[in-house]
Amino acid sequence: MTLGGANPAISVRDLVVGFGDHTVLDRLSLDVRSGEILGVVGASGGGKSVFLRTMIGLVPKRSGQVVLLGTDLDRASDADLRGLERRWGVLFQHGALFSSLTVRQNVQFPMREYLGISQRLMDEVTLAKLEMVGLGPDDLDKFPSELSGGMTKRVALARALALDPEIVFLDEPTSGLDPISAGEFDELIRTLQTTLKLTVFMVTHDLDSLRTICDRIAVLSDGRIVTVGPLAAMYESDHPWVKSYFGGERASLHFSAAAATEV
């Protein structure tokens, strides 16, 4: 297991999560370095989303330690936790936009909760963020039901970035998008990550995302992280699941085609 620099943005030690008799995560440990994009892959139903939701406090853990930005979630006071929640943003798989609020109000929701700034500044920053995720002023007053899948994800990303967080958790950001939109969205995540110096923790199934934007990949299998490293390290792994995932027909077609275009 590779350890991050002196201060990893996220540090998880011996995390155990289960429901009833079923143990989903079994003494899982992982470090996410500051300023990297880490992609987590694993079988469907293998606990990737549970892992993400445990870190942001939506699923209770049985034991183990989660340290986000130097704060141990178990030892932090309520005030510390609230301060910490400002410093991360979450993009849920289906966007989770508030359906009764417009795009503008959705993005402004966290700002209104945390920052005492004027409506004018909120409006301007909201528009700036929407334009940074590729939307325009005409989308401001739309309701989530009027948005396409790709636009929903973009608005959700803008909302996740509303407070300029340091860590962004993305749950399958490109699922449900066509390959072109998915590619654009990957590009967007990469650009925003470099512009805003974000640490990105991303659960994904998209081989393209893994190849193009992830600095490192962590493979979750049987409740543990079995391999962490750049894409090249994945091919050298002996673990059977990693082998079939990255050595499978779909993957090899993918990567050989990609290699051919890059040459």
Partner: peptide, 10 residues
Amino acid sequence: RVAATNRRTP
């Protein structure tokens, strides 16, 4: 990037 935004009034 920010300079490119807010050019059109909503």
